[in-house]
Amino acid sequence: MVPTSFYIFLAALLFTIGAVAVLFRRNTLVIYMAVELMLNAANLAFVAFARQFEALDGQLFVFFVMTVAAAEVAVGLALIVTIFRTKHSVDIDAMHELKG
């Protein structure tokens, strides 16, 4: 069997790659996907701990995280589409002022 710490380490690695991608990339959609990657890494940690403590609560939290992520993606992509209509760009540097 694989120790739980290995799974948590993998989750940490994926989370770090996601965080660096948020800071590296300029495309808003890719930044958004990197946020999804970080959510997935947190989910992996949840499931790993659920396995270690043999409690289903961790898996149910993953279920709720997925639902919230779906809602977040729907609203976030609608925001990006709306911003694209006024700025005609998905470059993160185009969104440096609050006035639309």
Binding site: P3, T4, S5, F9, A12, T16, I17, L23
Partner: peptide
Amino acid sequence: LGVALLLEVTYFVFAALGTGVR
């Protein structure tokens, strides 16, 4: 900052959980 975060988390994960096989 990413490398620093990774090293931190790695240290704490292996310090707290160890590599014991359950």
